[in-house]
């Protein structure tokens, strides 16, 4: 089994009103040093034995479904597991 961690975040150019609300709360709590908050998604994929190239398959999944590249960026980490 291989574990893949996928991180999906809004592009820099896209406003994140949820993040702005959280930043506002943090500031009110006394954490004024927080300059910006961006909220994203974290997905864990457990991949069973495959002959396909994991990197290219996960990239395909991200492009086709897991992220909307009009508004989101993604990156992923592949971890071997025993």
């Amino acid at each position: 089994m291989t574990k893949v961690k996928v991180f999906v975040t809004l592009k820099e150019s896209v406003l994140d009103p949820q993040g702005a609300a959280v930043q506002g709360s943090l500031a009110k709590m006394g954490y004024g040093e927080v300059a910006d908050v961006r909220i994203g998604k974290y997905l864990e994929l457990t991949i069973s034995e495959t002959t396909r190239d994991i990197d290219s398959v996960v990239k395909e999944m991200c492009e086709k479904l897991l992220a909307n590249t009009v508004i989101e960026d993604y990156r992923f980490e592949v971890e071997e597991e025993n």
Binding site: V14, L15, P17, Q18, A21, N68, V70, I71
Partner: peptide, 17 residues
């Protein structure tokens, strides 16, 4: 339709949440 690429752009969370 935007997810399908039949129309350009995307719909985001309302600014006032």
């Amino acid at each position: 339709l935007t997810e399908a690429g039949l129309l350009p752009g995307a719909l985001l969370r309302n600014v006032n949440l």
